[in-house]
């Protein structure tokens, strides 16, 4: 019973420590219990002007304007950075649908959601009828050249759903031009043909 020496005990201790270290390492590599990669939204990428099928609707970003000053519902708002006004169209597939989730992201991983002074006006349009929507974001000038806009149906839960990710295609030159632009009127959101479509 007393035959086991210090060498054996040290070996057991080293093996136990190694097992603990290995277990800790493996646990660190495992996904967090609250992570659910299977629930991640299905990202569908596009450029400005390209329709994106997001299952319940087709979304097209029509254009982006920018300025340090915007006029919205009779109120002028000034930004120390830039205001970006994104116009996009939603055509519902089977039932009234709007894009309630809108978020900008740049290449540094910074995101701008619908908080503070940012806004997204989008009427849930019936099937087949274009709903003209407007998202307004306040961003720093250096973010402009790499911005992507994400749009989805539910504002608080994008799990399992399709997510339109649209590269706004902006450049440093655009950012400089926006910084020098005059007051930018935020267009109204609404249903049906736009004024331009009516004229043509």
């Amino acid at each position: 019973m007393t035959g086991r020496g210090w060498g054996h005990r040290a070996g057991v201790a080293v093996a136990a420590a190694a097992l603990l270290a290995a277990g800790s390492l493996v646990q660190g590599l495992l996904p967090d219990p609250e992570d659910d990669p299977g629930a991640a939204p299905h990202r569908r990428t596009a450029a400005v002007g390209e329709p994106v099928d997001v299952r319940t609707a087709t979304v097209t970003v029509e254009g982006v304007d920018g300025s340090t000053r915007v006029e919205d519902l009779g109120t002028e708002k000034v930004s120390p950075g830039l205001w970006l006004v994104v116009r996009y169209t939603v055509v519902a597939e089977r039932e009234n649908t709007a894009m309630s989730f809108a978020e900008l992201e740049d290449d540094e991983g910074r995101t701008w959601s619908l908080a503070a002074r940012n806004s997204n006006s989008c009427t849930a349009g019936p099937p087949g009828l274009p709903s003209h929507c407007v998202a307004v974001f306040e961003v720093p000038v250096d973010a402009v050249p790499t911005l992507r806009l994400s749009l989805a149906r539910e504002s608080s839960d994008t799990r399992f759903d399709a997510l339109a990710v649209v590269d706004l295609g902006l450049t440093e030159a655009d950012a400089e031009a926006f910084a020098l632009a005059g007051v930018l009127a935020v267009p109204d959101a609404g249903l049906g043909a736009s004024d331009a479509e009516e004229e043509s």
């Binding site: 089977r94 039932e95 009234n96 009427t123 019936p126």
Partner: peptide
């Protein structure tokens, strides 16, 4: 195809 009567 379903259109809600929600006004607007």
């Amino acid at each position: 195809h379903e259109a809600d009567a929600v006004g607007g």
